[in-house]
Design a protein around this nucleic acid. Structure first.
Length: 316
DNA sequence: CAACAAATAT
DNA sequence: CATATTTGTT
């Protein structure tokens, strides 16, 4: 009921179009692909190591850092207009709204406005939807302060993997939102986020039950009981350090503003794992496209987690 | 209050 | 569509 009337307008992208997104492909030649880069937000040392040596949590590099980096790049480009191309491109890079607000570290991938996959583009990260620009303040204290609406959480393959792992290790019985959230130990992840995801996950599994489906050879059975013997997925004592998350890449927008998008791995996973696909609802052998859970994140063994086989599977 | 499931909203 | 939020129940 309340409803703020936040304008949803403020669209920076108005009729503009194509132009191949304004990317300067020449600049990308020889550079490692986004997939090969270590996300800015990812610490170079393992959480354990950091913990062991009492290394500061290190806020991690995120939007602000990227912003600064892009700023210096832009300025140096301005100084050395090596080519008209560069100059032309620089115009594209208009600094964005308010860097200061971007600061902070947002651990998870957030979604702003789906630019849509049509373009082959990925979900854009939102820094704030508010007036399409950055929120004027906040981002730093989501947790502590109330009433600020956080951007939508995007369940990336990694996040999902983590979710699955935790749920698997907890056992169906103990896999409740709160616990899962705690064990996942992802900064910014709320109980609601998990609850919502869990609900969907359960629905997904229900549909799946009874349909072993030949194709899926994988494991997707969860132990019924808390695996007491099983080691915890992410560090027995929950490491104080948040899990490595995604990085964000800037993308010259259509009209000058920068768009940001999560760097994803692999070609497939455009942004998130994309989900709970139902098995053939009835007899319709529709081209089983399972762009779901495991398929999206599994393949690209990105971060952590060893695909440990989960013994024992007893559906309810 | 927390968990759940189902509906509903964005 | 994927998530979030609401609602009613346990």
């Amino acid at each position: 009921m309340g409803e703020e009337a936040d304008a949803k307008d403020c669209d920076m992208v108005a009729g503009d179009s194509e132009g191949e997104e304004g990317r300067v492909l020449e600049w990308e030649v020889g550079l490692p692909s986004a997939d090969d880069l270590i996300p800015l937000s990812q610490s170079l040392i393992s959480p354990d190591l950091a913990y062991a040596f009492s290394i500061a949590p290190e806020p991690a590099h995120t939007l602000l850092d990227v912003y600064r980096a892009s700023q210096s790049t832009v300025s140096s480009l301005r100084r050395h207009p090596t080519s008209s191309l560069a100059v032309a491109t620089v115009k594209f890079f208009s600094p964005f709204p308010s860097p200061s607000s971007v600061a902070a570290d947002d651990p998870v991938v957030l979604e702003g406005e789906g630019d849509d996959a049509e373009n082959g583009t990925i979900a854009t990260v939102a820094i704030a939807d508010e007036t399409c620009c950055l929120p004027t303040e906040n981002f730093g204290d989501y947790h502590s302060n109330r009433a600020l609406k956080r951007p939508r959480l995007v369940w990336t393959a990694q996040l999902h993997k983590r979710f699955i792992d935790v749920v698997a290790h907890l056992g169906i019985k103990n896999a409740v939102p709160k616990t899962i959230m705690q064990l996942m130990n992802v900064e910014g992840l709320t109980r609601e986020n998990v609850a919502s995801h869990l609900q969907k996950y359960r629905l997904y599994r229900r549909r799946m039950e009874g349909i072993p489906d030949e194709g899926s050879s994988s494991f997707d059975h969860l132990p019924q009981e808390p695996s007491a013997q099983m080691p915890m997925p992410y560090g027995m004592p929950p490491p104080p350090v948040p899990m490595p998350v995604f990085s964000i890449a800037f993308h010259p927008g259509h009209n000058g503003a920068m768009e940001m998008m999560p760097i994803v791995n692999q070609h497939q996973a455009a942004g998130a794992y994309h989900g709970f696909v139902s098995p053939h609802p009835n007899g319709g052998v529709i081209g089983d496209q399972q762009g779901d859970w495991w398929s999206a994140g599994n393949k690209s063994g990105l971060i952590v987690s060893h695909p440990r086989a989960i013994p024992n599977a007893k559906l309810m």
